[in-house]
Design a binder for these strands. Structure first.
Lengths: 208, 208, 208, 208
DNA sequence: CATGAATGAGACTTCATTCAT
DNA sequence: AATGAATGAAGTCTCATTCAT
C-alpha cells in the first residue's frame, strides 16, 4: 500500500471513529458534520470525499459495529468450546448481552438495527474479516448438531434476534421493566420457547 | 363548555390530526412546524400555545395512537367473545397485526414505542376512554381462565409485546425476511413458545 | 374615590411596580409584556388599558423614580439643615450617590436619563408631590446665599448633573476606574472646579 | 496576501461598514442581520463566520470608531503644533467636538461608550495603527510640560472624558439645554475647573 | 486529493398587539 | 373594564453542501 493510500485510509478511519464517538455521546441529529470533521482534524470538504452524507456514515458505522460484535462473539464461542446448537445459541446471546450491557452507548446506537436488515448486509457483503462468513457459520452450527432440526432456521434466527435486541434495549437503556440481570433468565426461557416453536417433530420440549 | 373552550379543543385537535398525517407521510424530521400549522389552518404561534415543540406533539401522538389501537383491540375482543386466555392473546395480537398491516404508516410511527414505556403510561395514566383500565383488563383475562397460570405475567406481556412489535415492523415495513402474512404462523408459534416458557408446572404445551 | 377607581389604581400600580422590578433585574429588552402582566397578576390586554407599550411604561418609570430620588434628597436636605449653596449642592450629590450606590439596579435603570431631559420634565410637569417644584427649590437655594453668584445657573446644574451621573455610573456599575468610595473626593473637587468655572467675578476660587 | 485572504478581508469590511451605516441611521435594535447582509451583499450565514451576533459587531464597531476618532485627533494635534498640556487638552476636546458635531450619527453611536471602558481597551489592546499607543501619548503630553503637575492624571482624564461625552451628547443630539456652539465656552471653563481641582499646589489657575 | 469560505434555504421561536367574549 | 386565545411578522441562527483555490 502506497503512502498516499495509507493516508487516505487514516482519514477515513479518523472520520469513522470520531463520528461513532459523537453519535453515541450526542446523538445522531445532535451531531453535525462540522463536529465530525473538527474532531477528525480534516477539512469539511474532505468528508464528502468519503461519505455521501451523515446518514451514509451512520449506516456504514452500524454495519461495522454490528459486525465487530458478532465477530467477537464468534471468536468467544470458539475459545469457549461449547458444543451443541442450543447451548451455542445461548452462549452467543449471553456474550452479546454482556457486551451491550457494558456498553449501552453501542446498544443505543445499533438498537433496532442489529436486525434482519443488517444481517442481510452482513450475509451478503464481504466481511471485513477475511474469510469469515456469518451465514455459513450459523448453518454450520446447525448441521454439526444432529440432535436438532428446525423448520426455517433463518426465520428462527430472525425471531430470536428481534426479541433479544428489542427487550435488551428496554432493559439496558431504560431499566424497564427491570434490569438485564433480572430479565436474563426469562429471556433465555423465551428463547427456548421459540426454539421449540420452530422445532420439527421428533425434537420437542417434552420428549425426554 | 363555552364557545371559547370548544374552539380551543378544535384547534388542538386540528394540530394533532394534521401532525399525525404529516409525520406518517413525510416522517418526523421531514415535517416542519410550518407544515403542521399550514395544514391545520392556524397561525404559527398558536402551535406553541398547545405544544412545547415538535417532539412534544410527537410523544403525545404516540401515546394517543397506541392507546386507540389497544382500545380498539379490546372492543374487538369483547365483540368476538373469545374465551380462554391463550386464544384471547392470539386474538389481540392478530387484531393489532391486521390494523398495523392495513396501516403501515401507523406502525412505522408507533414502532418501537408500542412498548413497555407506553404501557407504563397507559397503565398509570388515566385512560382517555373513561373507565377503561388496560392493566386491569389484562389481569382479568388471566384470572378468568383457571386453566393457565404464569410466573410474572407482566413480564410475559412485555416479552410478547416486544417480539410482536419488532418482528411485525420488519415484515410490514421492509417485507423482510418475508411478508407479515407468511410470517404470522411462525410468530404465533413463537408466542406459544414464550407462553410455555413463562408457564408454571402443570400447564405446559404438551399436556393434552 | 370610588371602589372601582381604587381598583384601577391598584392595577396600574401593580404593573408599575412589577415592571420596575423586572426591568432592573432582567433588563428592558429582556423583559416582555407577558412577564409584566404575569407578575402583576392581570391579563395581557389589561396592560394596554394603562400603557401604550413597553417604552411608555419605561419612560414613566424613569421620571417617577428620578423624581422620587430627588424628592428624597430634598427632604434629606431639609432635615440636615445645611446652609450655604455650595455645601447644599455637595450634600445633595452625596445623598444621591449614597442612594445609587446602595441600589445599583436603580442607577443602571435611570442611568443617562437622570439628565437634562428628565429635569425638563420634572420642571415642567406637575410634580407627583403636591406643591413641590424642583426648579423653584433650586433657584431658592441660590438666592438664599448672598455670598455666591453664578452665570447661567441652570447650565451649571446641567453640567454638574451630567458629570455626576456619568462618572457615578462607571464607578458603581463597573467599578472602573475605581470604586465610588475612592472616586468621591475627586468628584467633589471636580464639582468645585465647575462651580468656580461658572462663578462671576468677585466670587472665585482664589480669593480667600 | 493570497487572493482568498484579500476576499475575506473585503467581506468583513463590507459587513463592518454597512452595519455602521445601518446602526447609525436605523438604530441598533432597528437593524436586523438580514439588513446588514443584504446591504453588504453577502449571504446570511457569512455574517456568522465573522461575528457572533449583532452585539458582537456593535462592540467591535464602537471600539473601532472611537479609536479612529482619537487617532484623528492625535494626528490633528501633531499638525497644529500646539504646545503646553492644557492647550493640548482643549485642542483635543475641540477637535473631537467638531467631528462629533459634524457627525451626530457617530456621536449617538459611541455615546457613553467613548468612556473608560473603551479607553481601557484602547490602552491595553494593540492599536490598529501600528506603533501608536494612546496611554503613552497622553502621559507624554503631561511630562513634556514642566509647568503642570496633577495628582492622578488618569483619573482626571476619565473625569473630563465623561463630562465631555455626556454633555456633548445632550447638546448635539437633543440641542438641550442649548446647542454645542453655545455650550462650548462653558464646557471649556468646566474643564479648566476640573484641571484645577486635580492640580497640585503651586500650579493653579489664578497664579500669574 | 484537500481545503474551508461561502452559501442560503429554512427551521425554530418570540412577542407585541388585537379583538371576540 | 377585563380577559387571554390567537395572530403572524420578524428575528436569530444552523448546517449540509458546493466549489474555487
Amino acid at each position: 500500500m502506497g503512502k498516499l493510500e495509507v493516508n487516505k485510509k487514516k482519514k477515513r478511519e479518523a472520520l469513522f471513529d470520531r463520528a461513532f464517538e459523537l453519535f453515541t455521546t450526542q446523538g445522531i441529529s445532535g451531531t453535525t458534520i462540522s463536529d465530525i470533521v473538527n474532531a477528525a482534524g480534516v477539512a469539511k470538504g474532505t468528508f464528502y470525499l468519503y461519505f455521501r452524507d451523515k446518514y451514509d456514515i451512520r449506516n456504514k458505522l452500524i454495519v461495522h459495529k454490528a459486525e465487530e460484535l458478532l465477530y467477537q462473539a464468534h471468536l468467544g464461542l470458539q475459545d469457549a468450546k461449547v458444543t451443541g446448537f442450543v447451548p451455542q445459541i445461548h452462549f452467543l446471546v449471553d456474550f452479546m448481552l454482556d457486551r451491550l450491557n457494558e456498553n449501552p452507548a453501542l446498544l443505543n446506537f445499533i438498537y433496532k438495527n442489529l436486525s434482519w436488515g443488517i444481517f442481510r448486509e452482513l450475509f451478503e457483503e464481504k466481511s471485513a474479516h477475511e474469510g469469515f462468513d456469518f451465514r455459513q457459520a450459523y448453518l454450520d452450527f446447525l448441521s454439526q448438531d444432529a440432535s436438532v432440526s428446525y423448520e426455517q432456521p433463518e426465520l428462527m434466527l430472525f425471531t430470536i434476534l428481534e426479541l433479544v435486541s428489542s427487550t435488551c434495549h428496554s432493559c439496558v437503556i431504560h431499566h424497564m421493566p427491570m434490569s438485564l440481570k433480572e430479565y436474563r433468565p426469562f429471556l433465555h426461557r423465551s428463547i427456548d420457547g421459540i426454539l421449540m416453536g420452530f422445532g420439527t417433530v421428533g425434537q420437542d420440549c417434552c420428549v425426554s
